[in-house]
Amino acid sequence: MSIQTNVDLGFPLRLFSVGCEPKPKKNINHHSKTEFLEDVENAVGEEVWDIVRAFPLGVIIRFVENKFTWSSKIVEHLLVNQLACKKKPEMWCLFGNTPARFSLSEFENITALNCEDDKKELPLKLSRMVFDLPKFEKYPWGREAFKRLIASVKRVNLNANSYTLDGFVQTLQVWAYNVVPSLGAKIGRPSNIDGPPILKFKGLKGTNNIDINLVSVADTDNIRNVFINHVTPTVSDDKVVDKKIDALLQAICKEGGLGLVTWVEHGTKNIQMEKNTGEEVRGEAEEENEKK
């Protein structure tokens, strides 16, 4: 029996056709800066700081203390290996030939931050909230951090000479370590710190000798065992329906899981690349025409 393709099953295409991915960048800029934490600590005092450190939000303080090392190569690999997804509050990536989702559910699992739904608007002066500890503790900081991160991922122009990501971008790197255990073991510098996944790795820079795709293919069985909650948390009022993503999620969550699927090489973002290179690359529009 032949293995079915994602097109046969009505699943989404790759975002970029194989061979038409954006050129690798030397580095990815990000606005996830932590230097201000020392100023906040000095402002509120040691007693209040120790209390904050014990809150769920204290995971950020412990993360900084862990001296995590950023790797733009891993995050760029995720971004260029996305699946086409119309839904704004989630991203799907291929690890080798196996899809995995990054949404508020995965973000919460990785960081253990408060991601509960809260209809209140973000205060103008966030720093002052630390002086109202009950309010500070209950605020859904995790949800706010995720919204900024995923919005940044969705709007970034990967074909640009350089680009910048906003939010808690290191979460994406740890997510990759979490989805592909052998990748985390090889270059994640696992730590013995108790806590959520964001604290269990120290990261590593300079991973040019690692082929992330090959490592992912070799770890396919573990990737397939990654739990994906079939109920996607609501992040915004976005009501966009993506039948292909829904079909993929339904297949993953059914008894027995997804099974073997071959992801065809052509993707949705290829028309401009085709014009630039003169190569003949099929896209989603052509695929849809064939079905008519």
Rank of each mutant, 00 (worst) to 15 (best):
Ser2Pro: 15
Ser2Gly: 09
Gln4Ala: 09
Gln4Lys: 13
Phe11Ile: 07
Leu15Ala: 10
Leu15Phe: 11
Phe16Ser: 00
Lys25Ser: 04
Lys25Thr: 02
Asn27Cys: 11
Ile28Asn: 00
His30Gly: 01
His30Glu: 02
Glu35Ala: 15
Phe36Glu: 03
Phe36Gln: 04
Glu38Leu: 12
Val40Glu: 04
Glu41Gln: 12
Gly45Tyr: 01
Val52Pro: 00
Phe55Arg: 09
Trp70Pro: 01
Ser72Thr: 04
Leu78Thr: 05
Leu79Trp: 09
Cys85Pro: 06
Cys85Val: 07
Lys88Trp: 08
Leu94Ile: 02
Phe95Tyr: 10
Phe95Leu: 03
Asn109Ile: 13
Thr111Ile: 06
Thr111Gln: 10
Ala112Gly: 08
Cys115Trp: 01
Glu116Trp: 06
Glu116Met: 09
Asp118Ser: 09
Lys125His: 11
Ser127Tyr: 14
Phe131Arg: 15
Glu137Thr: 12
Lys147Val: 14
Ser152Phe: 05
Val156Trp: 02
Asn159Glu: 10
Val169Asp: 02
Thr171Glu: 02
Gln173Arg: 07
Ala176Lys: 07
Tyr177Ile: 03
Pro181Tyr: 05
Leu183His: 08
Arg189Ala: 11
Ser191Gln: 08
Asn192Leu: 13
Gly195Asn: 02
Ile198Gly: 00
Lys202Leu: 08
Gly206Trp: 06
Ile210Asp: 02
Asp211Tyr: 05
Ser216Met: 04
Asp221Arg: 15
Ile223Ser: 00
Phe227Asp: 00
Ile228Ser: 01
Val235Asn: 03
Asp237Ile: 11
Asp237Val: 13
Asp242Pro: 00
Lys243Asn: 08
Ala251Glu: 04
Cys253Ser: 10
Gly257Phe: 00
Gly257Tyr: 00
Gly259Met: 07
Leu260Met: 12
Val264Cys: 11
Gly267Glu: 01
Lys275His: 12
Lys275Glu: 13
Thr277Ser: 08
Gly278Trp: 06
Glu279Phe: 15
Glu279Pro: 01
Arg282Met: 12
Ala285Lys: 14
Glu286Pro: 07
